[in-house]
Design a protein around this nucleic acid. Structure first.
Lengths: 178, 178
DNA sequence: TATTGTTATACTCTATAACTATA
DNA sequence: TATAGTTATAGAGTATAACAATA
């Protein structure tokens, strides 16, 4: 028989655990805010990448978003069916598909940005402006120390045969369906 | 053609996005630290609940951990096969299985606690003690404001037909396989 | 009839491999 | 032969429903 029964530190006082809780909560909140926009989190991440540099190949997009190229096919399919992007042939390399934002896709970007604003407000609205900034700074420092890419969500590390981090870009994607 | 092309705020300056990144990173870090312990995150959450009050029924455990009772069957199966818990008949209600920690299961708890220590150190080791405490406090306040249960991970909200939050207890579980 | 635990089935995601068309 | 994109297949995880034993 083991003695133990020592009292453990409550999980609310475990920053890494609270971080996990809040990360999940953040995802869910953003998911809901994105519903009226009409895209998923991952889809918005794609559009955001394209906003920075239109016309990337699916391969390049796969690397940035950290999804496998097989998954990227479906992602582009969805967005193309919704009229947010279109595939164009690259005359230089007719194997590659250049993915371009449509006007409709571009018009969606500010809506996603507004959803992000709302998400931040919803999560941190109870904090004072000073506390909010302090928290943002600390989180950014921790993310830097963990070597998390500035805008790439670690939820899709299975980049498969894609080259490692070719473009230091931004993306948002995740699984965590819960 | 739409004008836009306005510059968006980088995601690194979006606390809710960085929170999501770090939450995922925290999960992955803890997963790795738990490998030598020999249990998964969710399994550790179960054992931790039992540490507080041994002999709960699977139904009760389902409610606390926020997993469906069908899933709980498999969870208990795993832990019982590994020798960390055992099912006992409740003489008062012979339908219910009381789940009890074994000595081996109880011996595992301090190891999980050490893994949590290591996880916090690994994530926040670069911060000063003061900054670390500030961050912990701010995160706890945000979690309170979001009405997240003190020790229950929101990753399993599909409690099914289980009653809503019967015991204000602690648990850890998640999906986010990435 | 309702509840506890269990089992079975379907559905979603993902991982792996194989295929095509170009290079 | 290697690569970009696509398709197909299998696996893990979950949700839903149905079932047996007991209340």
């Amino acid at each position: 028989m083991v003695t133990s029964d020592k009292s453990f530190r409550p999980l609310r006082q475990r920053p890494s655990f609270v971080l996990s809780q809040l990360g999940f909560h953040s995802d869910r909140t953003f998911d809901e805010l994105l519903v009226p926009v009409g895209v998923t989190r991952r889809q918005y991440g794609m559009l955001r990448i394209l906003a920075d540099a239109d016309g990337r190949t699916q391969q390049e997009l796969s690397s940035v978003l950290r999804v496998h190229r097989n998954v990227m096919v479906g992602l582009v399919d969805e967005l193309e069916a919704a009229g947010f992007v279109e595939r164009r042939r690259n005359p230089a390399d007719r194997r590659a598909h250049a993915v371009h934002l449509t006007d409709r896709g571009r018009a969606l970007l500010p809506m996603g940005e507004a959803a992000l604003d709302a998400c931040d407000d919803q999560l941190f609205g109870t904090l004072s402006a000073a506390d909010r900034e302090t928290l943002g700074d600390l989180l950014a420092r921790v993310a830097d120390a963990a070597h998390l890419l500035p805008g790439v969500h670690p939820g899709y590390e299975q980049a498969g045969d894609a080259p490692p981090n070719p473009i230091s870009s931004r993306g948002r994607s995740n699984t965590r369906t819960g």
